[in-house]
């Protein structure tokens, strides 16, 4: 589904990603773990198309398309979704209205008719139930006045509405209590299918008890330094990141 080859990226002239190689197939869940500053969030930002980052080398092909050439909105329309580590509050813009715009612009991009009001409302009802998001929240301004847990649930709600092929969850577990974590993880698991894939970026192993990965990659100093099965996450949890740091001293 996605092939990342020798990806180098920098911000303000400072190189953060130093040659990432990663291939993800449909139906798989990949976890990317790593200490602070290893480049986890940079990787998600580069994939989603954040302007501040400059790709200096390498390629990313998503279902055969070079997505580095696409605008952030076109990447989303192609089926890429980023759940933000810090979801943005947008006063005055209604959650529902903007999602309708997003869905209809995506449909137009694919040459499809806009969604009917009735269909859309049914979709909102179904998907908000999936993440136990109060329908009142769905109607409010985007993330405005939401608690940390509500913001993260809203991310998964949007993901459910947009039905991406590849979802990147950027530290979705950060700041969540165990109940919120369970709700979020449940939502993600219910959305899993043989046709889509998920990248879970996290610092902690905890989330991976709920969203069980097929592969675990350890990112350190801008490179994937270790790849294994879900047991690698447990090993990391036990030995700590110093184990990695010691092994891969720069």
């Amino acid at each position: 589904m996605i092939k990342i080859k020798n990806l180098h990226a920098s911000i303000d002239g400072k190189e953060i990603l130093k040659g990432i190689n990663l291939e993800i197939k449909a139906g798989e869940v990949h976890a990317i773990m790593g200490p602070n500053g290893s480049g986890k969030s940079t990787l998600s930002s580069v994939l989603a198309g954040r302007e501040e980052y400059e790709v200096t080398e390498g390629s990313v092909s998503f279902d055969g398309k070079d997505i580095l050439e696409l605008s952030p909105e076109d990447r989303a329309r192609e089926g890429l979704f980023l759940a933000f580590q810090y979801p943005v509050e947008i006063p005055g813009v209604s959650n529902i209205n903007f999602l309708k715009t997003a869905i209809n612009e995506t449909r137009a991009y694919k040459g499809m008719e806009p969604v009917s009001a009735k269909e859309f409302l049914a979709l909102v009802k179904e998907k908000s139930a999936l993440v136990e998001l109060d329908s009142k929240l769905a109607n409010r301004s985007v993330n405005e006045g939401f608690s940390g847990g509500e913001k993260k649930r809203n991310e998964i709600f949007q993901m459910a509405m947009l039905e991406p092929k590849l979802a990147i969850l950027d530290e979705t577990d950060s700041g969540l209590d165990i109940d919120a974590l369970r709700i979020v993880a449940n939502g993600v698991n219910k959305l899993k299918s043989p046709n889509n894939a998920t990248i879970v970026i996290t610092h902690y192993q905890r989330l991976l008890d709920y969203i069980v990965p097929d592969f675990v990659h350890v990112l350190y100093n801008g490179k994937i330094v270790k790849t294994g099965g879900k047991e690698l996450a447990l090993e990391l949890e036990e030995k700590g990141y110093d184990w990695i740091k010691g092994e891969f001293k720069v």
């Binding site: 198309g49 909105e73 943005v88 947008i90 903007f98 999602l99 715009t101 997003a102 612009e105 947009l162």
Partner: peptide, 26 residues
């Protein structure tokens, strides 16, 4: 807010529509 524009874009809303949504809301 550029961050808000990027957030809307990352959901598939075009840059121009994102600007319009935000200006109208304001």
């Amino acid at each position: 807010d550029d961050e808000a524009i990027f957030y809307l874009q990352s959901r598939g809303v075009g840059r121009k529509s994102a600007l319009n949504l935000m200006i109208n809301a304001f």
